[in-house]
Amino acid sequence: MIPSWLNWKIILVVIAIIVVSGTIFYSRYVAGKIAHEERKNVEAWVEAQRTILNSADTASINLATRISTENTQIPIIETNERDSITGNYRNLDSATVKDNPLYLREKLLQFKRYNRFPIILVLKDTPYTANHYYYGESTLLKEARLYPIVQLIIVALFITIALVAISTSYQNTQNKLWAAMAKETAHQLGTPVSSLEGWLEILKEDTVNDKIVPEISKDVNRLLLITDRFGKIGSQPKLERSNPVPQISHIIEYMKKRTGKHVVFAFHHTGTTTYPLLSPPLFDWVMENLIKNALDALEGNGEISITCTSLAHAFIIDVTDSGKGIPKNIVKKVFRPGFTTKKRGWGLGLSLSKRIVEEYHKGQLFVKWSEAGKGTTFRIVLPV
């Protein structure tokens, strides 16, 4: 049985780590072999220099010269026995050496860090005279050392792109599912609501039902509003410039009548009223969801404060409750479809609200502040 924590993302990351780790170890092994071969090549080159200086045999000199000229990759600097640069070097940029007097000294220090012990060519025993040869990494060795780093970057980029693509695909699938469910709900509600409207017209003809009919009419209108809201999910709603303040005030009054006496509502508006583009039915739905969420957090006792701030570029709405707050470890999860901490409910209210604000109104909906035992503030930012 596969453990619950072992999902495809973890498996993908583990495989990537194994591949990259194996590559790094193998690259280090190859780089070590190349470095060993390069030292042998430098030793052979130094021996060729000895032959050129000391041998009288033409064949030996020709062979040594050939060995000497074949080194076109490994940079070498020659010093005397006191480590003073003689001016003899190989496979370094001559133009840079000419333009920068310190270039050879800087390279020598770099080579000494790479190889502490030089290859020594003794010229005379008495007085002792010798040349020291320091060498650096060839281009091939540098590429071998850089290869695992480049591969690590490529693998990390591949994993990132794969995860983003899969996450986007999953989110799009979820969005289509919620939109399909909303449209189907609207379709299913449509028939009984139409029937109720017909029966309501019949009841209006009977004077006995004067007190009942208005209340039923309110409920039918409410059902029509809910049907209209669900029908707008999944399609681009028509936006119009609206003043959100009266709408919010109306929603607060509506919710007040359906809450207990121990819940206090406060509503404030600052700044000159601005008119963002809104879909009024969907915006009302968002506000109702946030207020209902606040009421659930209060558990029948506390305060809900709604503050509107009009700015030149945005209309900001803060919905604050004095409830139990949201634990830090789940703040990022509250907008996920299906996530809920309640015993009842599908966990779609905040998810749909975020979709309405961000996708349809091009705004933002997020948790501005939350602290355990003190409350939570949800913020809506609507562009003007």
Rank of each mutant, 00 (worst) to 15 (best):
S4D: 09
S4H: 12
S4G: 05
N7C: 06
I10A: 11
L12E: 02
V14R: 08
A16I: 06
I17C: 08
I17Y: 04
F25W: 15
Y29S: 09
K33V: 08
E37L: 09
K40R: 08
W45Q: 04
A48R: 01
L53W: 08
N54W: 15
T58N: 15
A59R: 11
A59P: 02
S60D: 12
I61N: 00
T65V: 01
I67D: 05
T69I: 07
E70A: 04
E78W: 09
D83T: 07
S84W: 08
G87P: 01
R90F: 04
S94G: 14
S94W: 04
D99Y: 00
R105N: 13
E106F: 11
F111T: 10
R113P: 02
N115K: 13
R116V: 15
K124I: 01
A130Q: 10
N131A: 13
Y133N: 08
Y134C: 12
Y134L: 12
K142F: 03
R145V: 15
L152P: 01
I154F: 11
A156N: 03
I161Q: 00
A165L: 10
Q171R: 13
A180S: 15
M181R: 14
M181W: 13
E184W: 06
T185P: 11
H187C: 10
T191S: 11
G198M: 03
W199L: 14
E201T: 00
L203K: 05
E205Y: 05
D206R: 08
V208M: 13
D210G: 01
V213S: 15
E215F: 05
I216F: 11
V220M: 05
R222D: 08
L223V: 03
L223R: 03
I233V: 10
G234Y: 09
L239T: 02
S249L: 13
H250S: 12
I251F: 12
E253I: 08
R258N: 12
G260D: 11
H262T: 08
V263H: 10
V264T: 12
Y275F: 06
P281M: 06
F283T: 09
F283P: 04
D284I: 03
D284M: 14
M287P: 04
M287R: 06
L290N: 04
L295A: 07
D296C: 13
L298D: 00
L298W: 06
E299P: 02
E299G: 07
G300Q: 10
I306A: 10
C308M: 12
H313L: 04
I317P: 01
S322M: 09
G323Q: 06
K333G: 04
R336F: 09
K343Q: 09
G345R: 07
G347L: 07
G349F: 10
L350R: 02
L352C: 07
V357Q: 05
H361F: 02
G363H: 09
G363L: 02
L365T: 06
F366P: 03
W369I: 01
E371F: 03
A372M: 14
A372E: 12
G373A: 03
G373N: 09
K374Q: 02
T377F: 03
F378K: 00
L382M: 01
V384S: 06
